[in-house]
Amino acid sequence: ATLIRVMKTAPTLGIAIEGGAKTRQPLPRIVTIQRGGSAHNCSKLKVGQVILEVNGISLQGKEHREAARIIAEAFKTKEKDHMDFLVTEFNVSL
């Protein structure tokens, strides 16, 4: 797994995720990165990566909407000017 720091350089994070507990994709996977978003600007997040943790919060066992809420809140919070993603290139078999 790789720890990737994404600085909040744009008003939006700019990623689309698919997956979550009780679906064919057990952990959220990045399916799109939007041009001009913070994720695109950081250029380290890639389509296809599976997100294991966000700011130290594990997404394992979290359903899609819960995982999406955790990521959205980590981006919205004013406490930090960045987000830390723990990602892996491969599907974690659970």
Partner: peptide
Amino acid sequence: SCDKRLTLPPSEITLL
């Protein structure tokens, strides 16, 4: 586990 995953529903997609 392959069969199990095939019976699971596909996930929705959320833009963040």
